[in-house]
Amino acid sequence: MTELILHHYPASPFAHKVRCVLGFKQLSWKSVIVPSVMPKPDVVALTGGYRRTPFLQIGADIYCDTALICDVLEHLQPEPVLYPPHLKGVSRVFAQWADMVLFGAAMAYCLQPRGAQALFAGLPDGAAEAFRNDRRAMGTARTHPADATAAYRSYLRRIANMVEEHDFLFGTEPCVADFAAYHPLWFTRECVPVMADILSATPAVLEWMDRMAAQGQGRAEKFSAQDAVTVAAGALPQPLPAEAFQDEHGIPLGSRVTITAESFGPEPTEGTLIAATRTRYTLARTDPRAGDVHVHFPRVGYVLRRAA
Rank of each mutant, 00 (worst) to 15 (best):
residue 54 P to S: 02
residue 78 P to S: 11
residue 189 R to Y: 01
residue 198 I to V: 15
residue 126 G to N: 07
residue 103 F to C: 05
residue 303 V to L: 11
residue 171 G to S: 06
residue 57 Q to H: 02
residue 106 A to P: 07
residue 62 I to G: 02
residue 306 R to N: 05
residue 195 M to R: 14
residue 102 L to G: 05
residue 51 R to E: 06
residue 7 H to Q: 10
residue 253 L to K: 02
residue 47 T to I: 01
residue 161 N to T: 14
residue 62 I to C: 00
residue 9 Y to S: 09
residue 253 L to Q: 06
residue 235 A to C: 15
residue 87 L to I: 07
residue 273 L to A: 00
residue 189 R to E: 13
residue 135 R to C: 03
residue 19 R to T: 05
residue 5 I to C: 06
residue 13 P to F: 10
residue 40 K to V: 06
residue 290 A to S: 03
residue 243 E to C: 09
residue 273 L to P: 02
residue 271 G to I: 03
residue 168 F to R: 09
residue 127 A to C: 04
residue 97 W to A: 02
residue 241 P to G: 08
residue 241 P to S: 05
residue 266 P to G: 05
residue 86 H to S: 12
residue 250 G to A: 10
residue 181 A to V: 04
residue 152 Y to F: 15
residue 229 V to G: 00
residue 237 P to G: 01
residue 111 L to E: 14
residue 182 Y to G: 02
residue 264 F to I: 10
residue 149 T to V: 09
residue 190 E to P: 04
residue 245 F to S: 08
residue 44 V to R: 12
residue 40 K to W: 09
residue 284 A to C: 09
residue 60 A to S: 11
residue 10 P to L: 03
residue 293 V to R: 00
residue 28 S to Y: 00
residue 58 I to V: 14
residue 67 A to E: 14
residue 21 V to C: 03
residue 89 G to S: 14
residue 56 L to W: 03
residue 270 E to C: 15
residue 166 H to S: 14
residue 12 S to K: 12
residue 55 F to N: 06
residue 82 L to P: 12
residue 84 P to C: 06
residue 278 R to L: 15
residue 108 A to T: 01
residue 227 D to A: 11
residue 58 I to N: 01
residue 303 V to R: 13
residue 182 Y to K: 02
residue 96 Q to L: 15
residue 197 D to S: 15
residue 164 E to N: 10
